[in-house]
Nucleic acid binder design. Structure first.
Lengths: 250, 250
DNA sequence: GCGCAACATTGATCAGGATCAAGCGGGATC
DNA sequence: GATCCCGCTTGATCCTGATCAATGTTGCGC
């Protein structure tokens, strides 16, 4: 799917056409920042299943997901694995100031990333405070979602975990199109049952069973194995166990 | 224990005597940064069990733990709670750029924090890039530990969870004194069995049973309920399930 | 069309940790 | 010193999700 690259029409002056730089790096689109970023960027593509980085690898770039999906994960010696990050388009990969990858990064679908060479990126960050500020905000967001994820892993039942994951995916899907999740929306699951299990700290059999249970209960409708219709988003939310004030997402 | 405050001997020129500013805010101790931080700081104390912030509260300060222990946690409507952060001396509380606390912060022991009023702190951050950089590094560290915590919550057995927690506490305890954990070291548990359970996604009964099991196996020795001796740190590490290369911590 | 492989579903059984319950120990209060 | 309470331990039983196993479905290469 290397066509993804040529479908992107970058223009160094118009932020709207550069989702990566706009959403993931620049807080406001200062033309000179964009020009300097332009000089140090390049693209990489990976096929589904291909590793991007192993934990411990030297990282010579930071990057932003253009299209496709990658996961951050940890694997124990005996093979138990836990996903610790799910990287969707516009998400940031890499840590300025660090030399080695702390976790495995794997492409779960065909993947295109926009890379910035790390050294010059760090220099640019030093001279352009707004990039550092933006990165701090993004990191704080990631920390918040990691912490919500911890509640899911530590305290929720299998059914609540599945409902929570569907709600998270629906929300991210909707926000990518600058919408909020709506009742009746369709959701294409980007993950296999096994990847969902690794996300939620379950086995793939339990994931499958709980999805079937939610289907049987009418909370979701399946179209094939990977497409989910959510007839009533509020009812799905009620299954997540989160207290939900019926606010803007209803 | 409000005596904690008067025991602190701050000196605006000598970083060594100001653990907060040195470890948690300044990356290098520029005298003028210190002076400006000095102007906007004040102290607060809390008693054991007292809330510092509820999720959703307005935050008018950022802060650094001086002494004592606080937790970050989330509670579901039915009372299930998951700890998502453990704040020990020198840890940072608060999010520059955010107005509301995302999680509950509770003092679990008597607690003293050094606060900086948020507005001026953010202004100082804007004009002093090294503070922003330092904060980004600290946030990245927190994100990494949140992700290791996710592996513990999602994939480890109860026994591995307990061993992991003891190893984490031992390591933090040692690093506070600029050491590495050693075999034979004593560790004063700062948490009740219930708080440990909330940390690990277990019940307090399971925590108690697994601690007894580790004791019976000779992996730890208990002195009273709260003091743990670790006869051989490598043996404890072997119980965590982490792959452990026998490296610098052995 | 056939065969194969990857992904998914479903069933039967097992076990780890939760739940319910009783009792212990030590420190604070009177 | 007696009492109470909180934190903790231990036991008995239950139940959710893991494990082991078989079968179903889809898509792809030939």
């Amino acid at each position: 799917m290397n066509t993804a690259i040529k479908d992107l029409k970058f223009n160094s002056r118009e932020c709207g056409s550069c989702p990566i730089r706009h959403r993931a790096v620049c807080s406001r689109c200062e033309p000179d920042e964009l020009d300097r970023l332009e000089e140090i960027k390049y693209y990489r593509t990976y096929e589904a299943g291909q590793p991007v980085l192993w934990a411990g690898d030297q990282m010579e770039f930071v990057a932003s997901v253009v299209s496709g999906i990658a996961t951050l994960s940890q694997t124990m010696e005996d093979g138990r694995t836990q996903m610790v990050g799910l990287l969707l388009p516009s998400d940031f990969i890499g840590r300025p100031g660090r030399d080695f990858a702390p976790f495995d990064v794997v492409a779960v679908s065909d993947l295109t990333v926009c890379c910035f060479r790390k050294k010059p990126f760090e220099e640019l960050m030093g001279s352009t405070p707004s990039i550092g500020t933006r990165l701090l905000q993004m990191t704080l967001d990631e920390l918040d979602s990691a912490r919500e994820w911890m509640l899911i892993l530590g305290r929720k039942t299998a059914r609540e975990k599945i409902a929570s994951l569907l709600a998270i995916l629906a929300r991210r899907d909707a926000t990518l199109n600058q919408l909020t999740p709506t009742s009746g929306m369709a959701l294409d699951l980007p993950l296999t049952r096994e990847a969902m299990a690794d996300y939620l700290g379950l086995t793939l059999e339990t994931v499958s069973r709980q999805i079937s249970a939610l289907k049987k209960a009418g909370i979701i409708v399946l179209e094939g194995k990977r497409r989910v219709i959510i007839p009533d988003f509020a009812i799905l939310m009620a299954e997540t166990g989160d207290d939900f004030d019926g606010g803007p997402l209803a």
